[in-house]
Nucleic acid binder design. Sequence first.
DNA 1: AATGAATGAGCATTCATTCAT
DNA 2: GATGAATGAATGCTCATTCAT
Lengths: 229, 229, 229, 229
Amino acid sequence: MPRPPGHGPGYEVKRQEIIDLAADLFARKGYAATSITELGDAADLAKGALYYYIGSKENLLVEIQSRVLTPLLSAARRIQALDEHPVLKLRLLSETLLELILRRTDHIWVYEHDYRHLTGDNLTRLLRQRKQFEKIVRSLLTDAMDCGAFRRMDPRLTMLQFLNLHNHTYQWVRPSGPWDARFLSREYCATLFAGFRTADYDVSGLEDELGAFRERYQDWTAMVPAAHA
Amino acid sequence: MPRPPGHGPGYEVKRQEIIDLAADLFARKGYAATSITELGDAADLAKGALYYYIGSKENLLVEIQSRVLTPLLSAARRIQALDEHPVLKLRLLSETLLELILRRTDHIWVYEHDYRHLTGDNLTRLLRQRKQFEKIVRSLLTDAMDCGAFRRMDPRLTMLQFLNLHNHTYQWVRPSGPWDARFLSREYCATLFAGFRTADYDVSGLEDELGAFRERYQDWTAMVPAAHA
Amino acid sequence: MPRPPGHGPGYEVKRQEIIDLAADLFARKGYAATSITELGDAADLAKGALYYYIGSKENLLVEIQSRVLTPLLSAARRIQALDEHPVLKLRLLSETLLELILRRTDHIWVYEHDYRHLTGDNLTRLLRQRKQFEKIVRSLLTDAMDCGAFRRMDPRLTMLQFLNLHNHTYQWVRPSGPWDARFLSREYCATLFAGFRTADYDVSGLEDELGAFRERYQDWTAMVPAAHA
Amino acid sequence: MPRPPGHGPGYEVKRQEIIDLAADLFARKGYAATSITELGDAADLAKGALYYYIGSKENLLVEIQSRVLTPLLSAARRIQALDEHPVLKLRLLSETLLELILRRTDHIWVYEHDYRHLTGDNLTRLLRQRKQFEKIVRSLLTDAMDCGAFRRMDPRLTMLQFLNLHNHTYQWVRPSGPWDARFLSREYCATLFAGFRTADYDVSGLEDELGAFRERYQDWTAMVPAAHA
DNA sequence: AATGAATGAGCATTCATTCAT
DNA sequence: GATGAATGAATGCTCATTCAT
């Protein structure tokens, strides 16, 4: 979404590269402690040229947040719209979320830490989108309660447990580590769903159902890759 | 641990008050984005006087980290040393951890976000202490596996699940909110232990055992209150 | 009017000296084209120390405008309150205005040129005060019409002629030049009042009346010298 | 006076349009506070293209000053060369000057405020031309004194009064306001000439003489319209 | 004729810290 | 114990200008 009019063909490409660099720096040093000069050094670009691409420092933060929330929200909506069992949908959402966390750990780091440096409308919009995502998670969990799979629990606390377990992963995960998104999702969901389920609901078939689902919808991915990624 | 020598009786008291203010500011705005001037305003102290108490900005960060890790580590060690069932000990640790998170949410916020601004020995020491805490959690979990209560799982991943679920709580919890540490601990442990347990192990008696434990050791608390708190 | 609390005894003195320097620089180069670095050089003060005194660049502009308008408005009000003939009052106001223009030519230069760089409330307040001054001039002129000394003319245009002739003086006047405020006022008023008077009103006695007034109120000055001047 | 060689037919037209835009911007925001980027936005031209037309920012200032001084000087010379009564010539010059001020208020604003940002020869040339104009005004005034119409007064101060009254008009005048150049000139000259005249000289016939002059030289205008206007 | 991209110096302002008093 | 005053480097950002295409 380029702002100033009249940019050449390479503009957007370079712009995205700069945002990549910014995400890496912000993740490692924190948004407030990263200077535009450092970013210029990393991009090998004088400050003037840098600003030609970025507009402002906060703008970079907006873009990074957007790179997290846009695919996350659209994936959540696609999953919610599926005609599948709620618990399977939660399993799909879990894996999608972990994919994002593993693939874009630096972005998640910024997303979790530095959203408070957004101001005005940028902050308002972000908080609204976060709430929307949480609402979808909560509705999937209440669906699972309504169909008898999960116990009656406080929907908000159940959602928070789900998100606590997933979101905090960014703090220690390494993409080069031993565990991938599929594995972590299976483990996390095994834990959560064992705790959430009713005595009547048998969770042991879930992974098979997931396999069958993948069979049916080959190459299904919840997350639509962003243009630049 | 006051550094400069030769201080009067009120020195340490005022020093701790300043750290309180710093924790609040750092939690709300981030360490890097909080200026010493702001802290001076909050403390109603000129900058010269402020430095008389704090030594340096990083020093404040060290103190805040220490206020989290010192009671946490000592509590974890006291729990580990108890002659009780490993699962009960995990339940006690969970509640202790959540007590700290709820009572000192601002400190936890700084602890989770800004430890990366520590430098040199301060950082090394912090990371060492964090590892020690994680090691204790891991050993309690392997104890629970060894005694047949929990399934054989990767000890590190099990610990990370335990900590993910607990630690991320600082992001949304409000001390004035509807849930206290005891309630959250019961819920979290219900979820985790249902997922971790073997088919043979019955988790339903845990809360009663906890009650009995508290009966035996009246007024037992894992966490030794810090001098200033 | 010092803003931040807790300043030493020399603070205000130095502050006023810096505003003096700023007025000189702004007058010679223009507000927008004068950099804070230049001011720091002139004041022999590092930028940090400079800001300790000035708060912001715009603040300097506010102070300079205030140094013009505060004495001007109070002088105009004191003159308006006199129980004298309106034409004599105009003659007194003329001389007072020219005294200010001659004594503080640099301030007037900034006042005339750079008020547009004020923003928000600062601008609003300035424009309000300017209007108040103009209103006093206009009322003195209509008083002179009402008592038959001046022809019936458009009050606003008459005021604008009065102010055009006086205010533009800053553009060419030199304090070291051949003419002082008293002389210029006599000349300007001779021109204006000859043009404004009715056939019946004889303007030739005015300077004698002024002498008599000065005899009566010895050491009378319309302008109360500012504390720092 | 286009500088770079080899330009197409539309070059000069567009160049003049850009100077128009610049005059408007400089008048409203001040020369130093107006950026070339803003001008580019206003002209809907990228910066490269802009520089193709303008050469440099200072060049624009030169052109604007020239647009004021060139017609003003030539008008003053044409008036001076007329075989008419000096007071009538002053009346003609007054109206011409006010016509320029009213028609090109933005240019006058820049002319009065920002000439000091000219450097080197540009500044020298401007000051020389200003002096030339002032000399013509002064000589018309001494002519009026020599023929007995005006009292003997300091020629320079008389000229400065004449110019003060006229020039300061730019500060408040609106082309859409109630007064046109002819009216303002009549009022200003009524004021000035009543103050300047000898007891023997009757100023009341001046406007009739002006009418007769206009009758004789139909469509006479002192100001030759600039090519682009 | 016109553009998009780049530069490097400069801008106003804030920073953590020091220190004589 | 505490202050007011000072520093100098760094902050995010804008500037007039250039130039290959």
